[in-house]
Write a protein that binds this DNA or RNA. Structure first.
Lengths: 210, 210
DNA sequence: TACTCAGTACAACGTACGTTGTACCCTGGC
DNA sequence: GCCAGGGTACAACGTACGTTGTACTGAGTA
């Protein structure tokens, strides 16, 4: 189902381009780079393959554009979450739990994003090094650094005991990230997710709490 | 370079089959399922494509055979490591660190295996559900359960404080798994790996130690 | 020696895909 | 009313791939 079918709202440039980006995200995330065909992407975007090639040089560059924009968008959302939950902390444990819950709560398209992340990790050997580097910087590394910044500040305020904020950030994300259908097995109920997250935060605080 | 070139040692069945499995592992791990072509795999195994199809029905079943055998082999090695380091514990912290170090130390073909794991995680949506289930059971789940068994025993012996051994096992593996070239960024030196692993174990013991 | 059987080389088939060229359409602005 | 420019439909090209059939080889065995 095309996105823009309401009487051609505007021919303004960037309209079809955005449709292409989100359509390509869907298809790339579902099928991976090689399986995803140009025709499927164009169909998903409600666009002809020719316009696709008018906006992007080739499949590889389209893919790079997609992963970078997806990484940026999600990183933006996640750093916003960090700010919201860690800017002023009242009860550290409950705030961390709420952060981790919001973190792992499946937003509408975050599922697509993380599926795409798995594709990127698998495809990394076939993506030019600068592109993966840019992707990491715009996405996961940026978020981790931001989390590290917050943790260092909380340590300065005497709420945590942190030697290496970067490593602490890595430990936190690893402890609270919930196993999706891929990693561990089935999808979890809300209650199970909450338990999992709470126990992860507890272990984190045993290690880094004051 | 073919494996069996020493005057055709035996026409014994299973010879070429093994060559095919290891060759396919190499190619699948490097290029992923779709990129890997039958011709490349046959070449890598030093075998004609026709013999490939005499041993395996089609590409998909070859892939399933490859991932299951790789998972089993690595799971075997890892449970052996668990036994070796945790059967009798003298100093819990140093033993856990040694385990985690051996765990993350790149064995010759473990790199290929974990690359394959990334491929499987990306391709999961295109593999029949029973096959992924079998893979998980033969590989990661089996190891995690074994680790959980050890942790429960150590708790019974009073060395740990563990409520949910499965979750503790998950936390342990996540805390000590080293970021490869994919997850975090660059490859680490031996010293950095040791530091990373030690700090992971420390956090684990803060959470679960007695 | 003759048979068997795994393996090989080679060609063929159908299909799917990335990419480009081209002629046409429609809408917004002069 | 006309023009420009982004969008479309359609066909084409080259290529690569999965898979199968067939005729041949070469070693082990009765």
């Amino acid at each position: 189902m095309p996105r823009a079918d309401r009487t051609k709202p505007r021919g303004g440039q960037g309209d079809k381009r955005q449709a292409l980006l989100t359509g390509a995200l869907t298809v790339f995330a579902r099928d991976g780079y090689t399986r995803a065909s140009i025709d499927m992407i164009a169909d998903e975007a409600g666009v002809s393959t020719r316009t696709l090639y008018n906006h992007f040089q080739d499949k590889a560059r389209l893919f790079q554009a997609v992963i970078e924009e997806s990484a940026s968008r999600v990183a933006e959302a996640q750093t916003a979450l960090l700010d919201r939950h860690l800017r002023k902390v009242t009860n550290l444990e409950t705030d961390l739990i709420e952060l981790a819950l919001a973190w792992g709560t499946p937003m509408p398209d975050s599922a697509e994003h993380f599926a795409l992340v798995r594709q990127v990790n698998a495809e990394a050997g076939h993506i030019p090094a600068p592109a993966i580097k840019a992707w990491r910087e715009a996405g996961p590394l940026r978020v981790r650094r931001e989390l590290a910044r917050h943790l260092r500040r909380l340590a300065d305020e005497g709420l945590l005991r942190v030697e290496d904020p970067e490593r602490a950030a890595l430990h936190f994300t690893r402890l609270v990230s919930v196993p999706g259908p891929h990693d561990g097995g089935l999808t979890l109920t809300r209650k199970e997710r909450a338990e999992h997250v709470a126990s992860g935060v507890r272990v984190f605080l045993y290690g880094y709490g004051r």
